[in-house]
Write a protein that binds this DNA or RNA. Structure first.
Lengths: 216, 216
DNA sequence: GTCTATATCGGGATAGAC
DNA sequence: GTCTATCCCGATATAGAC
């Protein structure tokens, strides 16, 4: 049991370090097992597949990120909090950027267990969205009643878009991603402010209809 | 020569039919060669890799789609043309929807040769964008000078989003995708109209800044 | 140039002995 | 819970028939 947990951790560590060094595809299960100092078959005892190791990585990221995301909830301004939440992820995932790139192969397909839109990561996603809810509430950002139940999800999606861009951003230190964050943040916050105008009720209805279709 | 072209076609057909039946990953090169009635080695004579078959499929799609996309350029209204262009793709790719799902694995990564955002499909992308340019021009849609050079690309991107949703749309006959098309079309056309208001010059500047970052 | 046949290798995954 | 042996497949290479 204890040995089992240890071995599992050893394998996970070996996998992640190899993923970081070589990317996902070029790290073989044999390499992973070798680095962990176990037989290659044993890796499959702890992880159903190479993909399953990735799910363990997600789970771990969720746990590791929690304190950083709490620390991002400081400013009284929504824009600052959004920026801080995104930057916290840039910082944490920075060393794994290349590896995440390989993962994105599955991201678009919501049916893939490795997609952040899949059932299997629902818990993680919910955890993540909760941070946006908190940012909206604590900064007393006014959101129209009809949009309110969806606003955190919208911001989460906005963040996912930024992360996607960041993952494939080849500019030095991902400078362009920071620019994009900077350039879009103002637009996002402005749109939220505008969305409160009673005049824009029809526009909100259009958006709500689109959301309801997207959520199926 | 003639025989060679024939064999190549036979292999391509066999590959596509297997991709449609089983998806990309579960169709092996041995299966493909077997269905084409040739030795498995021969498939590699014509296609460098399994991936190369996909590129051939893209190329072929481009050629096949041309007449349908021309036929979509009828209505004097931009919204109708956009809908027709998207529907033409739904129709053509319909039988390959599942197979396209497997391909999307590479789509997010602009560095992958199989991504529609990659260099290697620049020609196809340009061909595709040209249809949106034509739709804008022929419907005499007024677009502000500063946005004009980018509008066709924006519409192309909008279409790609719809296609992405459609590929993974599990509702019967992809009903939700049609709803999404319907729900977003109005918004898109309205936004283009609004973008002409001189008052919105600052908003256009924000959008232009974002575009310039995205294009790197 | 077109095609068959075969051999070899690396890598994900599995079965079964211990 | 751990290891060894094995399977399957994609990819590559090669020898040779026509």
């Amino acid at each position: 049991m204890a040995a089992g947990k240890d071995t599992e951790q050893k394998i996970l560590e070996a996998a992640l370090s190899l993923f970081r060094e070589r990317g996902f595809a070029d790290a073989t299960m044999r390499d992973i097992a070798a680095r962990a100092g176990v037989a290659s078959g044993l890796a499959y005892y702890y992880f159903d597949s190479k993909d399953a190791i990735v799910l363990a990585f997600y789970q771990r990221a969720k746990d590791d990120l929690a304190p950083a995301l709490d620390a991002a909830q400081e400013s009284p301004k929504l824009a600052d909090r959004l920026a801080a939440l995104v930057e916290a992820k840039f910082a944490y995932f920075g060393p794994n950027r290349r590896f995440l790139g390989a993962l994105m192969a599955h991201a678009a397909n919501p049916a893939s267990p490795m997609s952040p839109f899949n059932e299997s990561s629902a818990e993680m996603r919910q955890f993540d969205i909760a941070h946006f809810e908190r940012a909206i509430e604590e900064t007393r950002t006014s959101v129209p009643r009809d949009l309110a139940p969806h606003m955190a999800k919208i911001l989460w999606l906005y963040q996912m878009g930024l992360l996607l861009f960041w993952i494939y951003d080849r500019s030095p230190h991902q400078r362009r991603s920071r620019e994009l964050l900077d350039a879009t943040l103002g637009v996002v916050v402005t749109l939220i402010k505008l969305s409160n105008l009673p005049l824009l009720k029809p526009a909100r209805r259009s958006v709500l209809r689109i959301i309801s279709i997207l959520e199926g």
